[in-house]
Amino acid sequence: MKKILVLLLSLLLMTSVVAYGDSFKVVSLGNDLSEKQKADMLSIFNVKESEAEIILITNEDEKSYLSGIASSSQIGTRAISSAYIEPLPEESGLTVSTINLTWVTETMIANALTTAGVKDAKVIAAAPFNVSGTAALTGIIKGFEKATDTKLDVDATNAANMEIVTTGELGEDIGQEKAAEFMSDLKEDIVKNKLSSPEEITAAIERLSKDYNVQLSKEQIDQIIDVMQKISKLDINIDDITSQLKNISGKISQVLEQGEETKSFLSGISEILKNIGEWLKGIVSRIA
């Protein structure tokens, strides 16, 4: 019996080595960064050049991933966004951080990564100065493929890029984190209930819009339907989405709760100022 247990333990360890032994850290650097900026990015990622494989992301790479999805102004003419990708043990989920990305948030990236099929990884998307971050996903996807020696499904990566652009544009109207949670909840509904037709997806959007108290234009709804139809055709498991976002979902709720607390606080301050104004008006009128 002891020999059997030892043999089983050895097999488990060997399986673990096969699963993760060949994976490694990868850093994707924007090709248009200066040498000093590239060194600064390695410092931000807290990794030495000898500790990770370095790949360069060109503006042409970004265009190939985002052509027909993002506008030319959103893509830009220089490759700046960089990323650190470290595969983690199975069931670790996704851990995402961003630095100097102004338009794309951690939650948006994490949501899109689940669509692309990226699993169990530590990801840092960053730039040496403020950029929108639209093309950040390009470096992350290429870096993950390199780190794990896998090729992600092209339809999935296209849908992921479309998802992040659509969420970013929606965020301009309703707020970044609210848009990220809206799209995440909608995607879970689409995948869980196997919704695929425009009518089914439209009904789901309308239900969720009421829950979130948001009004969407026809153009926004059509854009979201287009994304969700592409996602509905992918082989995505609802359990994969929830398990991969377990490190992210708490942050979303926390940010939104803080947002409501801030609104309440500001509302209280506004009421106080209004009362002070009325009191001062009363004094002035009596003096006059």
Rank of each mutant, 00 (worst) to 15 (best):
S28M: 09
M1P: 15
I109F: 08
K230R: 15
V18E: 02
S73G: 03
K194N: 14
A179G: 13
S50N: 12
E51F: 07
V27T: 09
K210T: 10
I238M: 12
E172P: 04
L256F: 01
S43Y: 13
I276S: 09
L280K: 06
M228H: 01
K3P: 04
V26K: 12
K2Q: 10
I225E: 04
A136T: 05
Y84K: 15
A112I: 01
V104C: 09
L280M: 09
V118C: 11
M14H: 01
I190C: 13
V123N: 10
S217G: 06
D61E: 02
K119V: 08
S73C: 06
K194E: 07
G282C: 00
F265A: 11
S82C: 03
E169I: 08
T98I: 15
L245K: 10
N130Q: 13
I4W: 06
W103D: 13
F265G: 06
L88A: 10
D22Y: 13
A126V: 04
M14D: 03
A156W: 00
I241R: 06
A203T: 10
S34E: 06
K263F: 05
N59C: 00
E60T: 04
A127Q: 03
I241A: 11
E53H: 04
A112S: 15
T102L: 04
I44A: 12
L8T: 09
G117F: 09
V118F: 07
A110P: 09
T102P: 05
I236T: 05
L208M: 11
V47F: 12
I4R: 14
E51K: 02
K146Y: 01
T15I: 13
E106S: 14
G117W: 01
G68D: 01
V96L: 04
D239Q: 11
E219G: 06
I109G: 14
T157L: 10
A126T: 11
L266Q: 07
K194W: 00
I75R: 02
A70K: 06
E260C: 05
A180R: 00
V6I: 15
A52I: 08
L94C: 10
L216S: 09
V154E: 14
T262V: 14
L42F: 12
G21D: 02
G76I: 04
A147L: 05
D189N: 12
L113F: 08
E206G: 02
V284T: 05
E35F: 09
I164Q: 13
S249Y: 08
N100F: 12
S232D: 06
L152S: 07
K233H: 07
N275I: 04
T134S: 15
F129P: 02
N275W: 03
L94P: 09
A70M: 01
E90K: 11
S270C: 00
T242I: 12
S209I: 01
I141A: 03
T95R: 14
G30Q: 01
A156F: 02
I283M: 11
A79H: 02
G117L: 05
D40T: 07
K36I: 14
V131K: 13
A136K: 02
A203F: 05
E188F: 07
K119G: 01
E53G: 05
Q229K: 11
K210P: 02
K2R: 12
G68K: 00
E51Y: 05
V17K: 07
K119C: 02
L42V: 05
A159G: 10
L280C: 06
D155L: 08
A126K: 00
Q176R: 11
M183E: 14
Q254F: 04
V154F: 11
E199W: 00
A159D: 03
Q74I: 01
